[in-house]
Amino acid sequence: MSPFEIAEPATIADALALLSGDDPDIRPLAGGSALMLMMKSGVFRPTRLVSLRRLDEFTGIAATPEGGIRIGAMTSLAAIEHSSLVKQRAPVIVEAMRRLANVRVRNQACIGGALAHGDPHLDMPPLLAALGAEVTIVGPEGERKVAVADLYVGYYQTVLAGDELIREVSIPSLAGRHTAYQKCTTRSADDWPALGVAVNLRAGKSGISEARIVVGAVAEIPTQLRNVEMILQGRTLDQALLAQAGEAAAAELSPTSDARGSAAYKRQLVKVYVGRAIAAAMDVVAS
């Protein structure tokens, strides 16, 4: 790696002043697990890193009065994994953490970085998008809120400007929701996913009344499966519906080929895993 400056501001104002809206070689540093890989491979050669670890406003996990959770951007994935509040209010996140990278990476990586990085092969963007989470972003103009579903615009590209920071992520109440996240890794157990499927359903006696399904890793950004969501609407779950949902998902997506699988292989994965994830959310077994 080539030399660079490290700044460790103690206030948000100082941090924002040290960042730059138009210099791509100046970037904020959260846990650093992903940035270190980019720096080691020479993809990213910074002139300045702005560490966020002294920003107290960026830490902590708290309950919201509405039944949701607020998580500071600098909270490690491990802290989320082991939070009793998250386990109680959003167990699907705890489950997803168990198969995300490995213990050491989860100890180091932070939720803000996992969302801001924009790598399509991460688990939290599709999952938090499906859960209806939103991020609070601070910047020179003040604060703004953006749904995680609207955060991504392209490969490693988000709506965040170079001088904006995710301060926290807020997850709404999931009371009465059926949720699941299923992923497939093709090279090793703790590899980045070849496919991740996040499901968030509301269902009652008259069938599924609300469905949100977001797929990660098959395209440049997390992708919401709107056709599948419409198919599920008002229906009662059975094996035929699961198969139909899988077929529709495969038809709706145009997977990209990469080291974790060809486009054709991923289309087959989508077909199988969308059904499995819906079944897991509703606690039934997909045949």
Partner: peptide
């Protein structure tokens, strides 16, 4: 693998300055 403040991390992904 090393422990920093009793937490296991990969030393190769940690900046020495930190």
């Amino acid at each position: 693998t090393i422990l920093i403040d009793d937490v296991a991390v990969s030393g190769c992904l940690q900046l020495a300055a930190m």
